[in-house]
């Protein structure tokens, strides 16, 4: 038992640890701690074990940097996937959001960060080298860049385009525009301009 735990007691220590999670303040942490207290020992151990497992068993896919328990992730090894398309995302969390749509059946590449021209930080060279190595094998014909529509995401997109286009691979960027379910009058100018630039012809049914 650590000295902190001894000083504060196990309950206070659990609250302090839970407060390290995003969006968890003291009150929420206290509520969760009481809930855990009411759980059976097996259930509480299962939560603890799950946290230990993701730290010990998960690693980055050797091909695409997705999170996986095996050396290569299930998406990269899936033979039903369209092997000619690669969608580039900043973080694995974006990959899961896109996977939830069920619309995209190609492969992925996770950059594990972006360029940040304002702070001067650079992108992971290893992740970019992996992507270029995949493209040089010649099977991939299109790279879809799905970085965030922020200055960092845009800089990364420009950077990747300059690297990829000389390899003869088509580079496309995901569309920007109006989110579904909002009133257009509340949309800001940049979003409206982007949506007009990315308009499409309605096909006759």
């Amino acid at each position: 038992m650590s000295s902190t735990t001894r000083k504060k007691g196990a309950f206070a220590h659990l609250i302090t640890q839970l407060m390290k999670l995003p969006s968890i303040g003291r009150k929420s942490a206290q509520r969760l701690a009481f809930y855990i207290l009411k759980m059976s020992s097996e259930e509480a151990s299962a939560i603890g074990q799950a946290i230990i497992d993701i730290k010990e068993k998960l690693s980055f896919c050797e091909i695409c940097n997705n999170l996986t328990e095996e050396p290569v992730c299930t998406i990269c090894t899936d033979p039903k996937r369209e092997g000619t398309k690669v969608l580039v995302v900043e973080e694995a969390s974006t990959l899961y959001s896109i996977e939830r749509t069920g619309e995209y059946r190609g492969l992925y590449h996770v950059l594990l960060g972006t360029l940040a021209p304002l702070s001067g930080s650079e992108i992971s060279g290893e992740a970019v080298k992996k992507l270029i190595a995949r493209l040089e094998k010649g099977k991939i014909s299109e790279v879809i860049i799905a970085t965030n529509p922020t200055i960092d995401g845009e800089s990364t997109s420009i950077y990747l385009t300059r690297l990829i286009q000389p390899l003869g691979v088509t580079v496309s960027r995901i569309a920007f525009g109006i989110p579904v379910g909002i009133d257009l009058e509340y949309a800001d100018e940049v979003t409206l301009i982007k949506s007009l630039q990315g308009r499409r012809v309605i096909e006759q049914t």
Binding site: P117, D188, E189, V190
Partner: peptide, 24 residues
Amino acid sequence: DIIRSNQSLREDWTCIELASQMVN
């Protein structure tokens, strides 16, 4: 509320660099 977005500065590499330098 946007008065002028300066969006074009965020779409060109040279502009990103130079504008970043100004604000930095």
